[in-house]
Every structure is written in structure tokens, then in C-alpha cells.
Simulated scan of single mutants.
Amino acid sequence: MSIIIFAFSIFCGWLIFDVVKHRKLNIKMILSSFVISVIAGVAWWLLDLIL
């Protein structure tokens, strides 16, 4: 469950950062935030397995 919360918070944070930086919201920003959050979630899961 913590992996999902972590990935969702990365998604929201990355999306907010992009919106503040570019002053607009488009599908490319949403998709890039989603990809980054999936990568972060997988990395968090792998760290959880290793440690």
C-alpha cells in the first residue's frame, strides 16, 4: 500500500511542478508525470524487496 501512496504523491508533485513551471496543463505533462510515478513506484518496490 505504501508503494501506491508513494507513486501517487510523486505523480501529484511532478504534475504540480510542471504546471507551475510551464503555466499550463496538457496531456503530455500528465503522461510524463504518470511515467515518472510508475518508475518511482517500481524503484520503491525493488528497494523494499532488497532491503
Rank of each mutant, 00 (worst) to 15 (best):
K21G: 01
I30Y: 01
W44T: 13
N26V: 04
I50H: 09
I10F: 06
M1T: 11
D18Q: 10
G41C: 10
V20T: 13
F17H: 13
I4F: 13
L49M: 07
L49F: 14
G13M: 06
G41F: 08
A7S: 15
V38I: 15
L15R: 05
F17Q: 00
F8H: 04
G41I: 03
S2W: 08
G41L: 07
A43Y: 11
I39N: 15
H22A: 05
I10G: 04
A40F: 11
S9G: 08
G41E: 00
H22Y: 09
A7L: 02
L31N: 12
I39Y: 12
A40K: 11
W14F: 08
I27V: 14
W45T: 14
V20Y: 06
S37G: 08
V19W: 01
K24N: 08
I3S: 05
K21Y: 06
I3P: 03
I39V: 14
W44R: 15
F6K: 05
F17W: 07
W45V: 08
F8R: 07
L51T: 00
L47H: 10
H22I: 00
V19F: 04
M29Y: 06
W45G: 06
S2R: 15
V20D: 14
F34Y: 04
I3Q: 06
F34K: 09
I3E: 04
S9H: 07
W45C: 02
K28F: 06
I16M: 09
V42A: 15
G41V: 13
S32R: 14
F11R: 01
L51M: 01
K24I: 00
K28V: 09
K21M: 00
A43F: 15
C12D: 03
A43R: 07
I36S: 04
L47Q: 00
S2K: 14
R23Y: 01
V20Q: 06
L47K: 13
L25G: 07
F11E: 00
I5A: 01
F34H: 02
S33A: 12
S2Q: 10
I3W: 09
W14V: 04
L51F: 05
F11D: 01
M1E: 09
M1P: 08
V35W: 02
G13Y: 01
D18H: 11
W14I: 08
S32E: 06
M29H: 12
R23F: 03
V38F: 15
V20A: 07
D48R: 13
V19A: 03
A43T: 15
L46Q: 09
F6V: 13
A40M: 13
L51W: 10
I50S: 11
A7W: 00
M29E: 08
F17M: 05
I10V: 15
L15I: 05
F17P: 03
I16T: 08
I10Q: 04
K24R: 12
A40W: 03
A7K: 11
L25K: 02
K21D: 03
G41H: 06
I16W: 07
H22D: 11
C12M: 14
I10M: 03
L49K: 13
S2Y: 12
I27G: 01
I36Q: 05
S9Y: 09
